[in-house]
Simulated scan of single mutants.
Amino acid sequence: MRMSKSSLQVGELAAGQALCIPIYRLQPEANTGPSVYIQANVHGAEVQGNAVIFQLMKLLENYRLLGEITLVPLANPLGINQKSGEFTLGRFDPITGNNWNREYLDSAIELPHWYAEHARLDDAGIIQAYRSALVESCQQRLSNDWGITTGHRLALNLQSMAHRADIVLDLHTGPKSCKHLYCPEYEVSAAQYFSIPYTLVIPNSFGGAMDEAAFCPWWRLSEYAASQGRDLGVAVSAFTLELASQERIDLADAEHDALGILTYLSHRGVIAESVRPAAMARYGCYLRNYKKFHAPKAGLVEYVAGVGEPLKAGEPLVNLLRLDHYGTEEALTRISLPVDCVPILHFASASVHQGTELYKVMTEVFPLDS
Rank of each mutant, 00 (worst) to 15 (best):
M1Q: 03
L13M: 06
R25G: 01
L26P: 00
N31Q: 06
G33A: 06
V42L: 10
G44H: 06
A45N: 15
E46A: 13
E46R: 15
Q48G: 04
G49M: 09
V52Q: 13
V52G: 09
I53C: 03
M57F: 11
L59V: 11
L60V: 11
L60N: 08
N62H: 10
T70D: 12
P73T: 12
L74T: 15
N76R: 15
G79M: 05
G79L: 07
I80Q: 07
N81F: 01
Q82P: 00
S84G: 06
G90V: 10
R91Y: 12
F92K: 14
F92C: 12
P94W: 04
N98H: 11
N99C: 04
N101Y: 04
E103F: 01
L105D: 03
D106P: 08
A108V: 14
E110Y: 09
P112W: 15
H113S: 14
H113M: 05
H113E: 14
A116V: 02
A116K: 06
A116D: 07
E117D: 05
R120W: 14
R120V: 13
A124E: 11
I126H: 12
Q128A: 08
Y130C: 01
A133S: 11
A133C: 04
C138K: 15
Q140Y: 09
R141G: 11
L142W: 10
S143N: 14
N144T: 15
G147H: 11
G147E: 06
G147V: 10
I148V: 03
T149G: 02
G151W: 08
H152V: 10
H152M: 10
R153V: 13
N157C: 07
N157E: 12
L158V: 07
S160T: 02
A162L: 01
R164A: 08
L169A: 08
D170K: 03
L171T: 05
L171Y: 08
P175K: 08
K176H: 06
K176Y: 09
C178E: 01
C183S: 04
C183R: 13
P184H: 03
A191H: 08
S195Y: 10
I196C: 10
I196M: 11
L200V: 10
P203T: 08
P203Y: 12
N204K: 14
F206P: 00
G207D: 03
C216Y: 05
W218A: 10
S222T: 07
S222I: 06
S227D: 02
G233F: 12
G233S: 14
E242L: 05
L243R: 00
A244M: 04
A244S: 07
E247Y: 01
L251A: 13
H256D: 04
D257G: 02
L259R: 10
I261S: 05
S266L: 01
S266T: 02
H267S: 06
V270F: 03
I271F: 00
I271S: 00
A278K: 09
A279G: 03
Y283A: 01
G284I: 02
Y286Q: 09
R288T: 07
N289V: 13
Y290D: 02
F293K: 11
A305K: 07
G308D: 05
G308K: 14
E309P: 12
E315Q: 15
L317V: 00
R322W: 06
L323C: 11
L323Y: 08
T328A: 05
A331R: 07
L332T: 01
R334P: 15
S336G: 14
H346A: 00
F347I: 09
V361F: 12
V365F: 04
F366I: 15
P367M: 12
L368C: 07
